[in-house]
Simulated assay, not measured.
Amino acid sequence: MKVRVIERRAKSIYTRSKIPGVEWAVNQYVGCAFACEYCYAKFLTRWKDYGRWGSWVEVKTNAPDLARKHVSGSIVMSTVSDPYQPIEAELKLTRKVLRYMDKRNELSVLTKSPLATRDIDLFKEFRTIEVGLTINGFRGREKRLFEPLTPVHEARVNALKELREAGLKTYVFVSPIIPEITDVSAIVEDTRGFADYYFFEVLNLRASGREFQELLRDEYPESYEVLTDGSAFEEFLWELKKEIRGLHVKAGGIETHRGGWEFIEP
């Protein structure tokens, strides 16, 4: 699928974040050609009438100049896009933003792409930085239905390993966790030793949108039932927390989408 590129100039690249514990978000791209079916950022299509989610990417052409600012507090890159989606290989916009950012800024980068390893040299220039890989273990049928255009599981794990071996602080964002589908223990075992800590996020069915809700209901009715039945969900959540504690890893927290972020100790 050909992706439409929309170029625009932004007034600022640092925007206040609503994520708990994060002061700022940086999105040099808006929209994402990975086009994950469950993506929570699809809500942007209400205001950006460019077409179906995943068919367009908005590029902030002056982002490198805007990135020079020093801001106090933590920054996450990115929240409504992926900084290393396919177009980045050509445009190198993320690399330019990293080059010009004030290296005193406290930065956390999150991606699904091994392309992030290209910028290890720039990551090392930051005083405080961590790089995370979203890893959900989707393969085969689930991969084809949920996120067919994303890098495969093994490529993400290998990228995480390369980043860690380069001396960078790394984390794994286990997301989305879908009952009966996501094998949290297998993901941890595949990445143990390559991650300083983990975040765990249960699928936010409401934010995933009507089309994905219908897809999950039709193709995986047992998973859908757990997510929509109050008592079944609570039982699933209790078992998940027990499983995570039993893995004995440092967990930054778990997002349940029923009660917000909850911190878990092994």
Rank of each mutant, 00 (worst) to 15 (best):
Ile181Leu: 14
Phe126Glu: 01
Arg164Lys: 15
Asn158Trp: 07
Glu180Ala: 12
Ala159His: 01
Pro179Met: 12
Pro114Lys: 05
Leu122Thr: 05
Glu130Met: 09
Arg127Lys: 08
Ala166Ile: 03
Arg164Ala: 14
Leu145His: 02
Leu145Tyr: 03
Glu162Val: 01
Val157Ser: 03
Lys143Ile: 02
Asp119Gln: 09
Ile181Thr: 12
Tyr171Cys: 04
Pro151Arg: 00
Thr134Ser: 13
Leu115Ser: 11
Pro179Glu: 12
Glu142Asn: 07
Arg144Thr: 12
Gly137Asn: 05
Leu115Asp: 12
Asn158Ala: 14
Glu165Leu: 14
Lys161Val: 11
Asp119Glu: 08
Glu180His: 15
Arg127Ala: 02
Gly140Glu: 11
Gly167Gln: 03
Leu168Met: 03
Ile120Glu: 09
Ala166Val: 08
Pro114Met: 10
Val131Gln: 00
Thr150Met: 09
Thr150Ser: 14
Ala116Gly: 08
Ala159Gln: 04
Gly132Trp: 03
Pro179Phe: 14
Gly167Thr: 01
Asn136Arg: 06
Leu149Phe: 14
Glu147Gln: 04
Gly132Lys: 00
Glu125Cys: 07
Ile178Arg: 08
Arg141Gly: 04
Leu145Glu: 03
Ala155Trp: 10
Ala166Trp: 07
Ile177Gly: 06
Lys124Trp: 02
Asn136Gln: 05
Val152Gly: 09
Glu130Ile: 00
Pro148Cys: 05
Gly137Glu: 09
Leu163Asn: 05
Lys161Met: 12
Val152Leu: 13
Glu154Cys: 06
Thr117Ile: 15
Pro148Ala: 06
Phe173Val: 08
Leu160Arg: 04
Gly137Asp: 02
Thr134Gly: 00
Arg144Lys: 15
Arg139Asp: 08
Arg144Phe: 11
Leu115Gln: 14
Leu163Ser: 09
Val172Thr: 07
Leu163Phe: 05
Ser113Asn: 11
Leu160Ile: 09
Pro148Met: 07
His153Leu: 11
Ser113His: 08
Ile129His: 05
Ile129Glu: 00
Glu142Gln: 13
Ala159Gly: 01
Lys124Glu: 06
Phe138Trp: 10
Glu142Trp: 10
Ala155Glu: 15
Val152Lys: 14
Pro148Thr: 02
Gly137Gln: 01
Arg139Gly: 00
Phe123Met: 01
Glu165Arg: 14
Asp183Ile: 11
Glu180Tyr: 15
Asp121Glu: 15
Phe138Leu: 04
Val131Lys: 08
